[in-house]
Simulated scan of single mutants.
Amino acid sequence: MPAIPQFSATVFSPETAPVRDFYVSLFGLEVSTDVGWFVALRRPGEVWEVCVWDPGHEAVPAAARASAAAGAAPLLAFVVDDVTALAAAARAAEVPVLGPIVDEPWGQRHVFLQDPAGTVIDVVQFIAPDPAWLAAHGIDPSDAPVPA
């Protein structure tokens, strides 16, 4: 199996600046590359990045351009320490919050947001899972995510 030294998730948007600013202001990402039609965002010391790419740029393959034009979009997920605080910051910044904060029995508190390109973002905080839910699904409690 090949090594994977880095991971990137790419959001297509013909307007890269507002999408860049969204991830910088709400998630604290830093711009590592910005050439206008392509932006790479990272957190210092991390090996993953979120990229924003103008689908109209000549470097975007035709199939990807067609997919973006059809409205196909990824779902991004960020794990945070405090979903409630991040949701409040999103509302204060007039970011679309797509529903209430929900506590799931499998051990996640989450809320869905939408970035300026229309990408849906699942913001997740690990919480203690419901022991009854784990038992009903045959999951050993030691295999469940544990709140940090």
Rank of each mutant, 00 (worst) to 15 (best):
D122Y: 07
D54G: 00
A89I: 03
A87N: 04
S142P: 04
E46M: 10
P96T: 01
E30I: 11
R42S: 08
S32E: 14
L76R: 02
A132T: 05
A69D: 13
A117I: 02
A62F: 12
A73F: 01
V52L: 06
V102M: 10
E94P: 04
R65V: 01
S13T: 01
G118M: 08
A64P: 05
A92N: 07
P18T: 01
Q108A: 12
P44H: 15
G107A: 08
E46Q: 13
P5V: 02
R43Q: 09
A136C: 08
Y23R: 02
S13Q: 02
A92F: 03
P2M: 10
V95K: 08
P145L: 14
D21H: 07
W106Y: 15
V24E: 09
A68I: 08
V35I: 13
V19C: 01
S8K: 05
F126Y: 13
L86V: 14
A68L: 02
P131H: 05
V146D: 10
L26N: 10
W48H: 06
A59T: 04
T33W: 03
H110L: 15
A40L: 14
V31I: 14
P116T: 11
F38L: 12
D54R: 00
V50H: 02
D81V: 10
I101W: 01
P145Y: 13
E49Y: 04
P105S: 12
P141I: 14
H137G: 13
G56W: 00
A77E: 07
D140V: 12
L75R: 07
T33H: 06
A92D: 11
V124L: 14
A68V: 02
A63C: 00
Q125N: 13
A135G: 05
W133L: 02
R91H: 07
A117N: 12
D122H: 06
D103E: 15
F78R: 09
I139F: 10
P105Q: 10
A73L: 11
R91N: 04
V19P: 00
P96I: 13
A132L: 07
A66E: 15
E30D: 11
W133F: 10
A66C: 04
G28T: 01
